[in-house]
Design a binder for these strands. Sequence first.
DNA 1: CGGCATCCTAGTTGATACTG
DNA 2: CAGTATCAACTAGGATGCCG
Lengths: 130, 130
Amino acid sequence: MDTEDAGVNGQFDVMTLGCPSRLIMQRLGDKWTPLVFLALKDGPRRFSHIRDGIGGVTPKVLTQTLRTLERDGLLKRTIYPEVPPRVEYELTALGGSVLGPLEVLSQWSQSHAASIMRARDDYDELHDAQ
Amino acid sequence: MDTEDAGVNGQFDVMTLGCPSRLIMQRLGDKWTPLVFLALKDGPRRFSHIRDGIGGVTPKVLTQTLRTLERDGLLKRTIYPEVPPRVEYELTALGGSVLGPLEVLSQWSQSHAASIMRARDDYDELHDAQ
DNA sequence: CGGCATCCTAGTTGATACTG
DNA sequence: CAGTATCAACTAGGATGCCG
């Protein structure tokens, strides 16, 4: 039997223009979101730790990403009123439930990077030759 | 089918700036890629069928997406020299191996869309409250 | 330390129209 | 039918500098 979510979970369908579920999927797949999830997979982490763990993020973009994920209930932000200030981020239960799939995707990417680059070269050689 | 892919996850690391695996993961997560995969999950499909199945794609963007995926060896494009012209797209074995994870993501998005929107409202109420 | 505010650019997307 | 071409627009992302 085909278990269509559309029936069970209501009216959400990523194939439909403007459907919230599509926007959410796009969030999950955007440039930095998966990397933030990976950075938080082992528990709460500080801002600077996340920043250092993700090669190439600027503070501004990291902040934006973290805020969006917090707003969506995927991670929790805790401020410790100390000097110097300390802020920790950690995945919520909801956020934790996507971690698995995102890890699968990252590992797939790492595992198949070589063959994809090879496919790319083959394609370019055929279509772009000289 | 060769197994030259990095069996270990040591060679490629998505956390590293400029690593090809990161670019590949970003490709998988871009605006239209997952939707194309979903449109092709049941076998070969024609251009117009894919276009009609994905709400809001323009031909230009769809073509771009399909070309990129073809170049990366994730799908195959077959031209049938008929009148009228017929072109079919289908996932390769490599492409088929990411379909599962992408479906998981889309279903997760559909299943949790409601609670995420609710989390969003809660957040806005707390932080935007006047 | 952990952010905002600003400005700016570069790549992406979209609307529209046209073609093999 | 299955695209391509062109132009316009948008916006994510980066550089820089200041603040609690």
